[in-house]
């Protein structure tokens, strides 16, 4: 199992009876491509943050790659995330004042060890993601939204994570860019045998995924 949640409860407020998330048991197998959908404010992003170790659950066990995130220190979780989890968001996926190559290099710098040839890998990824060579050295803020989201895939994949988490990455793209983004993403993930957890409210994307989950079914709300 890549992700395993057991008895996970989460609330932003302490001593709050009403839990935002309450998951008895939920898991993701290796190589799965899961689309989680649900209305906004339901806790999709929160769930992703818990799985990436950015938030800790109030109660319960969170395992990623068979490692217990809930038992790690903040520092250990940061290191674990850098090494094993790639993330792509709806927007602001790149440090705006760094160029594409440096954004990828920065992501690489947080991972432990890694190969010294990250630059070769970065250029290979950027080429595969159809970013023109002339745009590699431009500050990220000068790239189009479509370009930024594709560079974000390269940035998320540079450390060869086993798990890719995507939070509405296509919401700010037009339909052409969205299809382009999805097909490139799926191609790269397929090649690397990665697991994908993708959050979106857009059910039209469902055809690209191996498993569909409604957040309301994952989490059981008391009352």
């Amino acid at each position: 199992m890549v992700v395993q949640l057991t008895g996970v409860q989460f609330s932003y407020e302490r001593d709050c009876q009403k839990q935002l998330l309450d998951i008895a048991h939920w898991g993701v197998k290796r190589g799965e491509r899961i689309l989680i959908h649900g209305p906004s404010g339901a806790g999709k992003t929160t769930l992703l943050h818990i799985m990436s170790g950015l938030l800790t659950c109030t109660r319960g066990e969170v395992s990623v790659m068979d490692q217990r995130l809930d038992q790690m220190s903040v520092q250990q979780r940061d290191q674990f995330r850098a090494n094993n989890i790639g993330c792509v968001f709806q927007r602001f996926n790149l440090i705006p004042y760094l160029n594409a190559i440096d954004n990828i290099g920065l992501a690489h710098s947080f991972s432990a060890g890694g190969s010294g040839q990250w630059r070769d890998e970065a250029t290979a990824l950027l080429s595969a993601l159809m970013i023109d060579r002339g745009d590699w050295a431009k500050p990220a803020s000068n790239l189009s939204m479509g370009q930024q989201q594709r560079v974000a895939i390269a940035r998320a994949l540079i450390n060869s994570p086993a798990l890719l988490i995507a939070d509405e990455p296509t919401s700010s793209l037009d339909s052409d860019n969205r299809d382009n983004f999805l097909s490139l993403l799926m191609e790269l993930i397929g090649k690397r045998d990665m697991t994908l957890i993708f959050v979106s409210h857009d059910m039209a994307l469902a055809e690209h995924f191996t498993r569909l989950e409604a957040l309301s079914e994952i989490t059981q709300r008391p009352g």
Binding site: V74, R81, A82, L106, A107
Partner: peptide, 15 residues
């Protein structure tokens, strides 16, 4: 704020 969030997701520690 967004920059902080991004850096943290990339694996940067608060330190």
């Amino acid at each position: 704020h967004q920059e902080i969030h991004l850096l943290r997701m990339m694996g940067a520690s608060p330190f």
